[in-house]
Design a binder for these strands. Sequence first.
DNA 1: CTGTATTTGATTGTATACAATTCAATTTTA
DNA 2: TAAAATTGAATTGTATACAATCAAATACAG
Lengths: 144, 144
Amino acid sequence: MNCPQLKLENQLCFPLYAASKEITRRYAPYLEPLDLTYTQYIVMLVLWEEKKCNVSELGKKLFLDSGTLTPLLKKLEAKGYIQRTREQSDERCLSVSLTAEGESLKRKAASVPKSMASCVNLSEPEAKTLYTLLYKVLDGLEVP
Amino acid sequence: MNCPQLKLENQLCFPLYAASKEITRRYAPYLEPLDLTYTQYIVMLVLWEEKKCNVSELGKKLFLDSGTLTPLLKKLEAKGYIQRTREQSDERCLSVSLTAEGESLKRKAASVPKSMASCVNLSEPEAKTLYTLLYKVLDGLEVP
DNA sequence: CTGTATTTGATTGTATACAATTCAATTTTA
DNA sequence: TAAAATTGAATTGTATACAATCAAATACAG
């Protein structure tokens, strides 16, 4: 049974999956001094921008659900980077905000993106094209 | 502290990470009738092509290590799709091969790629460009 | 030939991921 | 306004991922 569409090299999903994993793995050495994993890092990226965010908002932005975020946020709290407090107006909502330590971590993180960019062997226009196409895929998936 | 390079929207890694996860998630409904997860599916893709493969070869092709593959291959064996046998010439090597059932599963899988392609909202040239750029990233990472 | 080095999978430990379910708080509705 | 529906996190269960380590088999140097 000859099936070219089932060849690994003919899949678009596979380089996407592999590149994502490999890139994430390359982040580890740069994030270790910050005591962050990659997923914890992108949560901190949101908080450095927003200051305050509840779990569902984080989930929407990062494409993560509460089953991933709840334990992860507890770890960030244990590290002293964030606070978790129930919102007064709606006790169902858990508000996540930075501690002073979490805020000051931003300074140490400032060099991470440049370090990582140097790992990725793309020209500026190529990176831009890739970025655009990936968001097109993501947006196209939004409504199933 | 204003830090544009730390904005989520300025990261290339993030849409890569998110798109990969979302695409993988979209595979589930199509793979469920085959009783395969996404990772199990890409292992089967290799085996449908190669017939026979040892663990380290699978790992190289799929960017996975033995910590992921060993339990996964045991599950595929438990489902009856593959056989795991030590190679006679080198007892360290575990040879993975298809059973008749695993081979015949290929027929049921033949329609999966087309179904998935319809989920991805890219034109043919866009998909090709994305593919090329992703492999360029992967190849650029090969040697750290 | 033998002791050391290397190779190969397996194991262990930590950290995601996500579906499905639960539970409590809030909102809607009959 | 009391019951129903909805919402938002947390929990449970299953499946990856990968670093680090281990043990067995093999290769290889002297």
